[in-house]
Design a protein around this nucleic acid. Sequence first.
DNA 1: CTGGATCCCTCACGATACTG
DNA 2: CAGTATCGTGAGGGATCCAG
Lengths: 209, 209
Amino acid sequence: MAKRSYKQNCALAQASDVIGDRWSLLLVRDLLVSPRRFGELQQSLRGIGTNLLSSRLRELEAAGIIERLDGGEFRHHYGLTEAGKALEVAVLSLVRWGLAYGPENQKGYHHQNDWDLLALKALFQAKRAGDLSVCVQFKTDDFAGWMAIENQRVRMGLGEADSADVIVDGTIKDVFDGPPSNRLCSSGSKEKLQRFMSAFVLPAQAERV
Amino acid sequence: MAKRSYKQNCALAQASDVIGDRWSLLLVRDLLVSPRRFGELQQSLRGIGTNLLSSRLRELEAAGIIERLDGGEFRHHYGLTEAGKALEVAVLSLVRWGLAYGPENQKGYHHQNDWDLLALKALFQAKRAGDLSVCVQFKTDDFAGWMAIENQRVRMGLGEADSADVIVDGTIKDVFDGPPSNRLCSSGSKEKLQRFMSAFVLPAQAERV
DNA sequence: CTGGATCCCTCACGATACTG
DNA sequence: CAGTATCGTGAGGGATCCAG
C-alpha cells in the first residue's frame, strides 16, 4: 500500500504529499478553529465518506499533523500538533487568495459560521489594530463564536468567550456584509465594534468582502 | 461534465476547488519561476500523463490562473496571469512549512535546481537584507539561474542575468549546504556572497536547511 | 447514539500509443 | 513538439453494517 507520492525533492511537493490529498486541508482548516470530534468533522465535510475521513485522520496522525486527544469528558477528540498549527500561515494565505481571486459564493453550497471566523482572521492587519484590545462575541440561534484582538494578535474560539466587550446578535457575515447602520450589539458600544471591524481588510483586491 | 467541487462557501474550499487537484499547485510552482513550454512542464512533473497535463492546463486557463502566450519566437508558452502570480504568497508559505515540517529529502526522488530557487525566495527576510543590493548567478553544466536582491525585494530567473555581481560555479544547494570554506565564486567577492546568504533564514525550525 | 470498518461502484488518474 | 485517444488501475464517494 505504497502511498502515492510526487517523488520530488521539493518542499512544495513534499508538503503536497502530506496535505495535498482530497479533504486533508479542509480537515486542517476545521481543526485550526478548535479540536473536533469525528462526527463534527463528518458533518462539516459534507460528502466525505466515513471511510475516507477515518483514513485521512490516520494518515495525518501518522504524518504528525493531528493527534488523538483521548482524555477529558469526551473520548476521541482530534486536535492539531505543533506541525499542524504551523500550517495556519499557509492556510490563511490560501484563504486570502480564495477571497480575492476565487469563485463567487454559490447558492446551495454548504456554509458554516466557523469558516468565516477563520476567514476573518486571514484578513487581520496587525498595523491597523494598533493598541486595540477587544473581544467580540457572535451569537445566533445555531452558532456561537468569538474573536479577540490583543497586542496586535488574534485569538478565536467557538462557544462563549470568557469576557466579551461586545456581543453581536448575528453572524460575522451579518456584521461585515450588512449596511453600516444595521449593527446589532445587544451589549457593548457600536464604536468599539467599529474599531474592531477596521482592523480587517482584504489586501490586493477590494471587490469582494 | 460537472467538475468535482467541495461545494462549500469557504474561501479555502473554493481555492481548493481551483488549485487543489493533483499536479495543479506544482504546475503553478514551475510557472512562478518562468513561463514554460508544454514539454518543459512534462519533464518537470515526472509521472504526469500528457492527457492530464493538457487537462490541467485547460482547467487552470479557464480559472484565469494561467494563460497561453502565443506571440514571440516560440508558440505555445504558458505563463501566469495576475491571479496566478498572486498565488506566490501562499505557495511560499507552503514551501516554508514543507522545509520545516515536511519529510526529509529522499534519495532517488526527482530534483530540479529551479525548485531550489523558489525555496530560497521562500526563506528571504526583508529585514535581514537591509540596503543590500546584489545579483548572484548560479551556473553549472546543466543549470543556469540567478537571484537578485534590491530594495528588500527578490527577483529571480532562469538563464543568465543581465549583470551579476557574483557568479557561483555550482548549485544553490552547493552554496548553502556546503562547508563555509568551500564557496566557489568564479567571479565577485566572497564577502558579498556571504551578505547575500545572510538574508535568508528558515523561521520556526533550524533543523533542516 | 457515536465512532468506525467493509463493501461496491464510479471516475480520476497514470501509462502508452497515436495524430497534427 | 504539442497535444488527443484509449484503456487499465486504484483512489474517492456513498450506503450499509458492526462495535462500544
